[in-house]
Design a protein around this nucleic acid. Sequence first.
DNA 1: GCCACCCCGGGACATTTGTCACCGCCGACC
DNA 2: GGTCGGCGGTGACAAATGTCCCGGGGTGGC
Lengths: 201, 201
Amino acid sequence: MIRLLLAEDQGMMRNALALLLNLEPDIDVVAEAGTTAEALDAALRARPDVALLDIEMPDGSGLDTAATLRDELPGCRVLILTTFGRPGYLRRAMEAGATGFLVKDGPVEHLAAAIRRVLAGERVIDPALAAAALSAGPNPLSDRERDVLHGAVDGATVADIAARLHLSESTVRNYLSAAIGKTNTRNRIEAAHRARSNGWI
Amino acid sequence: MIRLLLAEDQGMMRNALALLLNLEPDIDVVAEAGTTAEALDAALRARPDVALLDIEMPDGSGLDTAATLRDELPGCRVLILTTFGRPGYLRRAMEAGATGFLVKDGPVEHLAAAIRRVLAGERVIDPALAAAALSAGPNPLSDRERDVLHGAVDGATVADIAARLHLSESTVRNYLSAAIGKTNTRNRIEAAHRARSNGWI
DNA sequence: GCCACCCCGGGACATTTGTCACCGCCGACC
DNA sequence: GGTCGGCGGTGACAAATGTCCCGGGGTGGC
């Protein structure tokens, strides 16, 4: 019996997956979580064989949870399940020690199959996504450039970002300009969008 | 037997819902669609009793599909199912003739119950969301203000928007300024975000 | 008829944004 | 030791943005 942790913030999706995976004869959903905090807590309590983690969660990223889990619960395999097949996500998932990476596409049966293969230690990755990740290349942005772009997504001004990061406005503008150059875009908004769609932030 | 059309772009969610709803003794999923075009096509072919429509779909909005369905297939009840409980969405859904409005939260059992109630002609709306919609008030933006904001989300410049809408740059700037004023924000990005989170665009 | 609102545009202006050159400091790598 | 890159900062400048005037035309309500 495969002991499974299910971390997914969208209630109906979580409920549906739990019901369907429990119908599988060899899978037992032993814990459910809607936030990364709950996921960590439940994992340490229930000690599952496989953790199925969504990336986008309200209080943080499933990628960070994966990294923590690798240290705290080394025997647990991690399978990332996400809406967006972003190249940078896949790269970060691998660096965080994930064994598999699936997009929320295709039937639930694929998911059950992936869980079994991940438990056997096999790496499960969508081939098209793997190719995209390789062709897209690594994240060109430095830490600070990511920070300032993160602020730019929701319309913060240079002054806002500078205050939040305790930097001077000149510095923020320089980082923004560098990020715009590296992403090959025309302004901070396009830069932030490209960075997001590539999974760089 | 309730004949149901299921329109949802996320493959795994659609698959999971189809499986679970088919398990209900009185529900029969007679058609599935991943785009609004497929949804319309399938609806006219399968003539379902209830259409379950997602709002966010790659080729358009489920809200528009609902309006079309009201004209083309008057006997069919429409139940909107969406990730985001945005006040403006609810308002637009009602104007488009939807009978029910659910967020992708809570268990699948709620969804099945809602389908039955909608078929009986009953209106099904999340009470908290209804209250939010009323307190948020109507959409303050004019058609053109929405158009220019739509362009602003992904980083288009004034020149880009003007070209796309066949307007002069002055006009675009005036609309943007008006939208920023009406949304009570500081720049086009904040304005676009607020408009999106309220379901105004 | 008047009023309000939307549509479309022009011009002027202050502010913000994006770019570039340059500075020092540090750590890593060869 | 030198070089490169990241980090933090300054100053100057062109371009884009946001705001405020103004104008005209249309439509719908009272």
